[in-house]
């Protein structure tokens, strides 16, 4: 018996940037519409919907499908911090693998305020005491990385150069201008060693994919080789969970490591496979995910 494969039937994206006067629901509608059009599906073409968002509000996913007259199926609104979109995708892919659905709609929508991210994760006293600035936690992690691995400030700047270059040819990207390492290092110091341009810019946008059970076809398709979610283990003071304390123990594996290991194992791939890629969570604590994917590869 062959395990069920999950493939991407359509994708849709609303550009990322700033869109004053446009609601998060409208961003989601644009992305969902485009993904369904590419998949050639309409109302009734999917049996479940999974929407990832952290700032979208109550029943944000329901509002998107309501605007399209596509309600009636189960709609799951998923929140897992920066991993919300990936968490939604994982639930959908697993449900298809389990034989629950033939097709599922997955979308991620967000409309973030400007500036340092304010999160209800932090109790008010922590904000008041200055212990709730997310970049400061990333700065400590960057400092530790530099201390332990020989990574330099210039290396950090070159990651930004690479990321910005990726945006140049992408019409959906918010930042589309090429920059130099010197530009990055000249931007304002937010929390040493992190400069402003090294931080993710809170923004607005939406993306959607239609997943379906893979059927034999001569057309090449993108398969979901693995999609894995892990949460932090207790004890690492600098973990994604931004705890107030931890123990003196440097052997606690990061959730990124746990998720990547599991995803590679599931996919039968390794970090040296050039087509694979991993993605770790951004600044919101608690979870991270790794998501290698490979076109047309079967387990």
């Amino acid at each position: 018996m062959t395990a069920t494969q999950v493939e991407i039937a359509g994708i849709g994206i609303h550009p990322f940037g700033r869109f004053e006067g446009r609601t998060v629901t409208e961003l989601g509608v644009a992305a969902v519409r485009a993904s369904l059009a590419e998949a050639g599906l309409g109302r009734g073409g999917f049996q479940a919907a999974f929407c990832g968002t952290a700032y979208g509000g109550v029943a944000a996913g329901h509002k998107v499908l309501d605007a399209l007259g596509m309600t009636g199926t189960p709609i799951f609104d998923v929140e897992a911090g920066c991993a919300s979109g990936a968490a939604a995708l994982i639930l959908a892919a697993d449900a298809i693998r389990a034989g629950q659905h033939d097709a599922a709609l997955v979308y991620g929508i967000e409309k973030m305020p400007k500036g340092i991210i304010r999160s209800s994760f932090f109790e008010p006293w922590r904000e008041e005491a200055g212990l709730a600035a997310t970049p400061s936690y990333f700065a400590l992690r960057a400092q530790r990385l530099m201390h332990e691995s020989g990574v330099t400030l210039d290396h950090l700047a070159r990651v930004v150069v690479k990321n910005r270059r990726n945006g140049v040819g992408n019409p959906a990207a918010m930042l589309r201008r090429e920059v130099t390492a010197a530009d990055v290092l000249a931007s304002r110091v937010v929390c040493e060693p992190l400069r402003l341009w090294m931080l993710c810019s809170p923004n607005e946008g939406a993306a959607a994919v239609v997943l379906r059970r893979s059927v034999a076809s001569s057309e090449p398709t993108v398969k979901v080789a693995a999609a894995v979610l892990r949460s932090h283990l207790p004890g690492n003071v600098l973990s994604e969970a931004t705890p107030m304390s931890g123990r003196v123990d440097d052997s606690i594996p990061a959730p990124t490591t746990l998720a990547a290991t599991s995803a590679y194992e599931t996919a039968g791939l390794g970090p040296s496979d050039s087509c694979s890629r991993t993605r770790s969570s951004g600044s919101v604590p608690g979870v991270t995910q790794a998501r290698p994917s490979r076109t047309g590869r079967r387990r």
Partner: peptide, 9 residues
């Protein structure tokens, strides 16, 4: 590290 701009709250 040092925080150079006032965070929310």
């Amino acid at each position: 590290t040092a925080v150079t701009a006032p965070p929310p709250g």
